[in-house]
C-alpha cells in the first residue's frame, strides 16, 4: 500500500477543496470498499480526505420546490437507513434492498453515499495480476473470456462487462431519487438515473461525478399517493452475496390497472438498469404474468448473453413476474 496522508476537514466544502487540490486524493467515508481496494492495490491514493465525521447523518422531511422530500444525509449508515420508520413504511424497496446486501457488520460501517459510490466491479478488476480496462485502460478485459457468471447483459461494451453491485442503488432507481452534490462550483442536484454511467470506451469512470464532487445527501420524493414497492434479489447463497439478478419495483394501481409502474434491475449492467421500455408497456395495464413477460422481453431485446450469462434472461423474467404479481396483489388489497 502506498504511503497515505489522512486529513479530516471540518466542513464539506473544505473536503471538496482538499480533493480538488490534491490530484492523488480521494474521499474516505465508511471505507468498507475503499480500504479493501487499498489492500488489494486496486486503489492507490496518496491522500485520504476523511468525511465520515462530517455532520451529514440526518434523515429528515424537507419541503422542497417540487413538494416534500425525505432527505437522507450521505453519512447515514446502511443499517440506520434500513431501520428508519419512515423508510420502512414509505420506501420498503430501500429497506429491503439494503437488508439484502452485505452483512450486519458492514451495514453498520457503510454509508449511504459510499454504498452508491462503491466501485462497479468484477473479480478481475480486483485482481491486479490480470488485465482490466477499468483498472488500467487499454490492457484488455479478462472477464470476456474468463469467469463470466456475473457479467453484464445490458449496456456492456467491448471494454467492460462489469456490473454495479449496490442493491440500494437499484432500489433508489425506482424512486426517482435526487442526488445532492457539492462541487467546486457549489451545490447541485442530479437525477439518480444520471449518477452512474455505462462503460462505453471509458470504463474507468463508474459515475458522472467529477473527482472532487462530494455527495452530501439523497432525496426521496414524499409523494402523497402510496406506492407499493419492494426488492427481490437472487443470489448463489441465501445471504451475504452479490446479486445474480435483482428486481426493484414500485407500483400504484387503480381499479386493477397500473397508474404508475417503475422497474429497475440489478446484476445486469454497469449501472442500475431502469427498465423504461418495460414500464411503458405496463402503463395503464393489468399486471398479469403474460403482460409482465412481454414487457420484460421487450426490454431485453437489446440484451447480449453468452454461455455464462444466458441464465440471467430467464431468471430476470421470472423474478420480475413474481415481484410485480406480488406487488399488484398487495396494491389491490
Amino acid at each position: 500500500m502506498r504511503a497515505l496522508d489522512h486529513r479530516r476537514p471540518a466542513t464539506a466544502q473544505e473536503a471538496v477543496d482538499l480533493v480538488a487540490r490534491h490530484p492523488g486524493a480521494t474521499f474516505l467515508a465508511g471505507g468498507s470498499n475503499l480500504v479493501d481496494h487499498l489492500k488489494l492495490g486496486v486503489a492507490s491514493p496518496d491522500v485520504l480526505v476523511d468525511v465520515r465525521r462530517l455532520p451529514l447523518d440526518g434523515i429528515e422531511r424537507v419541503e422542497g420546490e417540487d413538494g416534500a422530500v425525505l432527505r437522507i444525509g450521505a453519512n447515514v449508515r446502511n443499517s440506520d437507513l434500513a431501520a428508519h420508520p419512515v423508510v420502512r413504511s414509505r420506501f420498503p424497496v430501500v429497506a429491503r434492498a439494503l437488508l439484502a446486501g452485505a452483512s450486519g457488520q458492514i451495514r453498520n460501517q457503510a454509508t449511504t453515499a459510499g454504498n452508491l459510490l462503491q466501485r462497479t466491479r468484477c473479480v478481475y478488476f480486483q485482481d491486479v495480476t490480470t488485465p482490466c480496462n477499468k483498472r488500467e485502460p487499454g490492457t484488455g478485459c479478462s472477464a470476456l473470456e474468463g469467469y463470466g457468471r456475473y457479467n453484464a447483459i445490458l449496456g456492456a461494451s467491448p471494454d467492460c462487462v462489469a456490473t454495479h453491485p449496490s442493491d440500494l442503488a437499484v432500489g433508489l432507481a425506482v424512486l426517482d431519487a435526487t442526488v445532492v452534490v457539492l462541487g467546486l462550483e457549489g451545490e447541485r442536484r442530479i437525477p439518480f438515473d444520471e449518477l452512474h454511467r455505462l462503460p462505453g470506451d471509458r470504463p474507468g469512470a463508474d459515475t458522472t461525478l467529477a473527482r472532487s464532487d462530494l455527495v452530501t445527501a439523497v432525496e426521496l420524493p414524499l409523494d402523497p399517493d402510496v406506492h407499493r414497492s419492494t426488492y427481490t434479489k437472487v443470489r448463489d447463497r441465501a445471504s451475504y452475496a452479490f446479486a445474480l439478478v435483482s428486481v426493484a419495483a414500485s407500483v400504484r394501481m387503480e381499479e386493477g390497472r397500473t397508474t404508475d409502474v417503475r422497474l429497475a434491475w440489478g446484476g445486469v449492467a454497469h449501472k442500475p438498469w431502469r427498465a423504461r421500455r418495460a414500464e411503458a408497456a405496463l402503463a395503464g395495464q393489468q399486471i398479469t404474468e403474460d403482460a409482465v413477460r412481454a414487457a420484460v422481453d421487450l426490454e431485453l431485446e437489446t440484451t447480449t448473453t453468452n454461455r455464462d450469462t444466458a441464465y440471467k434472461v430467464a431468471m430476470l423474467r421470472n423474478t420480475t413476474v413474481m415481484t410485480l404479481l406480488d406487488l399488484a396483489e398487495e396494491a389491490s388489497r
Partner: peptide, 10 residues
C-alpha cells in the same frame, strides 16, 4: 463492526 476494513487513524 469489522476491524480489518477500518483504518485506525479514522
Amino acid at each position: 463492526h469489522l476491524t480489518c476494513l477500518a483504518l485506525a487513524i479514522a
